[in-house]
Every structure is written in structure tokens, then in C-alpha cells.
Write a protein that binds this DNA or RNA. Structure first.
Lengths: 156, 156
DNA sequence: ACCTTGTTGCAACTTTGTTGCAACAAGCCA
DNA sequence: TGGCTTGTTGCAACAAAGTTGCAACAAGGT
């Protein structure tokens, strides 16, 4: 369990290593995602930022830039909203070059669970997704998304 | 390969068997989906209906009712757009009770492919999705969605 | 043919996401 | 430290997807 400040400076470090400019918006958003551990929707993030609120548009752009540089990963739920999460295993010790793909790889490998009632999305790290997938001739597979839908413990 | 009229009357039959009222809107939409064979977005359907156009809102409600009664299945792409498709194997000869779950079952079992360029979604019937899936204690799985993302033959 | 009840179309609205642009601040160099 | 360049931010306005309320209408039973 990390202290808030640690998460914050780790986030700052990650942003710097990714080659992106270190701005408060990026650091705060990444820190928030790291702290949550799970997947957050755009709205979730806005709420958690609280009085540190940043513009809605900026948030979109921040998340885009973080996603592009592999610091976070975007997942589409069946409620047509994006959810974002950090790669759990991504450490601040990764080298600049290799760091870019850490989060992406992690999230492409495991599955997600979305509650059909409350819409919450969590990672199912135990499930190995996308092993030995065969696509028809002419198609080129780039990534695999495996989403299980059902009821989470809270919604029974 | 079925003739247009056949598809139309088959659709009418399916709607009747599902317990829904047989309306021109429902029959036309279901027929259009059957004829296409693949997955259509809301917009695709509107275009295909052409001069038989129905109200946007009605289309939403028609698709909802068809989905609820298992005649079609909704799939979320990563472009936050719903796509709808019929269960390929659903025959008009199914009994009223059993018919309801045909489409749902079929689509829960196989995977979908979405092109990251043009956004088109197709079914990958060869891939058996969701075999031997384990979810954590407390979670209840209802359905599995496996989506492969990449390039379709047209987009290279 | 008539009546009831589910269905349709319209208008207005909400939510999610995007675009253009001027103001601003990160990073770099002297 | 101060100034310059260029990427970032916030605002306003917009676009697309989807929803809600309501009056008019048509399907299916009697």
C-alpha cells in the first residue's frame, strides 16, 4: 500500500520517462488512476479530481496522450463509455523505451469483467485472454479484448 | 441464398413467435439484419431502410425490443457504437419458447472482429469464445464477449 | 366494426466526445 | 534568472449517439 505522495511522484516519473511533458494535469490524472487500482470512466476521474478539477476537454486530451504513450489503457464497456486503467505491474523503474508498452501489454493479456447492473469494470488477472486465436485469411489481428459480463458481488 | 420476400416473411414469422406485436417497423428491421448477414450499426440500418425510413427513436426502440426478445444481439465496438445482428442459425421453425434464446446463445459463443481502420465488425464463427472461463468468487458471469481488433482485408 | 393497449413519430433534451483558437506554461538555452 | 519556442490548457461552440414525454395511431382480440 503506497502513500498518496509516493503515487504522485511515481506518476510524475512515469510521465517524464514516457517522453511527454510533465504537466500537473497529466500527473494528477495518472496518479488518480494508479491510486484507484481499477478502471475508471471519464466521469469517475472528473469526480475524483475534486477541487483539482481540470477541463473536460483537457481530460480527454490527457487521457489520449497517456494512452498513446502506453501509460494507461482504454477499455470499451458495453455502455459505450471508455474506461481507463494503468498497467498494474508498470513500475517507475522501467526504461524509457520499454516503458511505453508495459501497460498495453498487460491489458491486452488479461480479461475484464463488467457488471451488467452497475456498469463497473474490473480486471480479471487470472484469466489469460487471447491465447491461440485464429483469424480468417486476410484479417490481421492486433489485439484481443475479452470481456465477461454479469453481476458483481455488490449487485448480487 | 434466400429471396428478399422469403427473408421478409421469415422475419414476420420470427417476430410473431417471439410474442411481440408484428409491426412493419420490426419486420423491416429484422429482415434487413437477416439479409445483411453481418453486424449493422444503427446508422447502417437507417441507410439500408432507404425510403422505408422509420424514425430514429423508433429504430432504437425496435432494436431494443428485438434484442430483449432474443431475435437480435447487440455488440459494442470500441467506437462506442452498438451493432446489431441476428443469430445466423435462428430458423423460423423454432418453437415460441425456445426461439427467444437462439440468437443470444449463438452470439455469446463466438467472437467478433473489428477493423481498427474502417470500424466494420464481422463474426468469427470459427473461434470458440469463452470456454472454461473462471471468474473470481462473488462474481456471476452471464455472457462473454471476445473481440479481436485489427485490420480487415479491405483496409489492409 | 370497436376498443384496448402497445407502437410510432415528433420535439426537446442529455450525455459523450470533438474542433478551433487564444492564453499559458514546460523545457531548453544563454 | 530571463526569454524563446512549442506543446498544453481552457473556453466556447459543435457533433453524434441515445433518451424522455406525449399525442396520434395501428395491432390484435372481442
Amino acid at each position: 500500500m503506497k502513500h498518496t505522495d509516493d503515487i504522485h511522484s511515481a506518476a510524475r516519473e512515469q510521465v517524464r520517462e514516457s517522453g511527454l511533458r510533465v504537466t500537473t494535469a497529466r500527473v494528477r490524472v495518472l496518479a488518480e488512476l494508479s491510486a484507484s487500482g481499477g478502471l475508471l470512466s471519464h466521469q469517475d476521474i472528473e469526480q475524483r479530481l475534486g477541487r483539482h478539477r481540470i477541463d473536460r476537454v483537457t481530460l480527454y486530451r490527457v487521457l489520449d496522450s497517456l494512452a498513446e504513450h502506453g501509460l494507461v489503457h482504454r477499455v470499451a464497456g458495453n455502455d459505450r463509455i471508455w474506461r481507463f486503467g494503468v498497467g498494474r505491474g508498470a513500475t517507475s523503474g522501467a526504461t524509457a523505451g520499454a516503458g511505453a508498452s508495459v501497460a498495453r501489454e498487460l491489458h491486452e493479456r488479461h480479461a475484464h469483467f463488467q457488471c451488467s447492473d452497475c456498469g463497473k469494470v474490473v480486471c480479471l488477472s487470472e484469466v489469460a485472454a487471447g491465447r491461440a486465436l485464429r483469424v480468417p485469411r486476410g484479417y490481421r489481428a492486433e489485439s484481443v479484448e475479452l470481456t465477461v459480463r454479469g453481476r458483481c458481488p455488490q449487485c448480487g
